[in-house]
């Protein structure tokens, strides 16, 4: 099993945000991690990446606890702008190449060239959408076992969203898995193998996307809207 979450509980003060979360992710899957705002998606993602410590439970990546070894095989795109160092795009590529043995510099430069992004430009001078693309390029240029993309298409135009989806599909290997957390379900559902619905810190559904569509005769987006109707 690539990723195992066992009995994960998380609290912020008195507020329980994750409750007995159990999850198994196999290799070679594209998984949609779907839920309303505040349902616990980002919290669980942060725990998997070692950015938060759960109150209870255990996360295993390739049967190893979260730590240096798991970070070598996870490529993570946070929902927020995290490349805040005042560096040029080229310098960020060098940074990633320095710390990640699986980083493919040639792939990164090719992807930049496709988008006509100048590697000598400072990241801070680029538009929001272009920054998102550069962040995604850096993440997808790694030959990781698990890609975790938290709201990769938030706040970007539809054409950029299509580019992001194409980049995701064309640049990960069959042995890897991708977890995509997003609200833009209709854009992303066509590429999903599995879907996980999370609500109020609990996993309420984890199924094959095709099976869910055929059983309900609806799109994942429609099923989500019904499930989480306000």
């Amino acid at each position: 099993m690539l990723l195992t979450c066992k009995n994960i509980d998380m609290k912020f003060g008195d507020k329980r945000v994750l409750s007995d979360v159990n999850l198994n992710i196999e290799k070679g899957k594209i998984i949609g991690f779907l839920g309303k705002n505040g349902s616990g998606k980002t919290t669980l993602i942060k725990i998997i990446n070692g950015l938060l410590s759960p109150v209870n439970g255990e996360i295993l990546v390739n049967d190893e606890k979260v730590g240096v070894e798991s970070k070598k095989v996870i490529s993570y795109l946070p929902e927020r702008t995290y490349l805040t160092m005042n560096l040029k795009v080229r310098e960020f590529i060098d940074y990633f190449a320095t710390f990640y043995e699986d980083f493919d510099k040639d792939k990164a430069y090719n992807l930049l060239a496709d988008l006509k992004i100048d590697a000598e430009e400072k990241l801070s001078n680029l538009s929001k959408g272009t920054k998102e693309k550069v962040s995604l390029i850096l993440v997808m240029s790694r030959k990781a076992s698990l890609y975790i993309l938290d709201e990769p298409m938030g706040g970007v135009d539809p054409a950029t969203r299509d580019y992001i989806l194409d980049t995701i599909l064309n640049n990960f290997n069959d042995d890897a898995s991708i977890i995509i957390s997003t609200h833009l379900i209709s854009d992303v559902e066509k590429i999903l193998d599995e879907v996980i619905f999370i609500d109020e810190g609990k996993i309420i559904k984890h199924e094959s996307a095709d099976k869910l569509r055929s059983e309900n005769n609806k799109s994942i987006d429609e099923i989500f809207r019904e499930e989480f109707k306000c």
Partner: peptide
């Protein structure tokens, strides 16, 4: 503060370093 506890921390703390 910036590299360990602000947004850049998302990059720093996910590096494969102890």
């Amino acid at each position: 503060i910036d590299s360990l506890f602000k947004d850049e921390g998302y990059l720093t703390h996910t590096l494969p370093v102890t």
